[in-house]
């Protein structure tokens, strides 16, 4: 095919414009296909039932110098009976990487098995990788029931 110079550039320009339109059109449609997929992968926020207070069992069920895990909403909490009269409660979620901590009666410490983190009975880090103290919860009594609540 022969053509004058100007007609050749014109058809060239036309082609550039067409492929640009086609390219952006396809890109935009692809984006519109995959955007919903990307959003779909992201799990929706489920409203957490706000728990401020839970019943943690009877006083006489926990011996002095021992601890137990109780459900605090959908997270675990650690209730410790330090001695006859003194009680402590913490969020049992280790501040390092989220494992559930436990009370160690022999050493009177709170211990995390995952990376050997230890906390004292005020929730402060004694050793290991945890960066922050455990969140402390309040302990109250209602008759012979122990009640744990979020501290104001």
């Amino acid at each position: 095919m022969q053509g004058t110079d100007s007609s050749r550039t014109a058809s060239h320009d036309r082609r550039t414009v067409t492929s640009w339109l086609l390219g952006t059109g396809v890109a935009a449609s692809l984006a519109s296909f995959f955007y919903p997929v990307a959003r779909f992968l992201n799990p929706p926020q489920v409203a957490e039932a706000a728990v401020n207070e839970v019943d943690a069992g009877k006083v006489q069920d926990l011996k002095p110098n021992s601890g137990k895990i109780v459900k605090f909403g959908n997270k675990p909490a650690l209730l410790v009976r330090v001695n006859d009269t003194e009680w402590k409660a913490f969020s049992a979620v280790c501040t390092h990487l989220n494992c559930t901590v436990q009370y160690q009666d022999a050493r009177r410490e709170i211990w995390c098995a995952c990376h050997n983190g230890t906390y004292d009975l005020n929730g402060r880090v004694i050793s290991g990788p945890p960066p922050k103290p455990l969140e402390e919860l309040a302990v109250k009594f209602r008759g012979d029931e122990v009640v744990i609540s979020r501290r104001a």
């Binding site: 109780v70 675990p76 494992c99 559930t100 901590v101 436990q102 995390c112 098995a113």
Partner: peptide, 10 residues
Amino acid sequence: DPFASAPAGI
């Protein structure tokens, strides 16, 4: 059990 302490030796 999500409401148990992490076991030793994990």
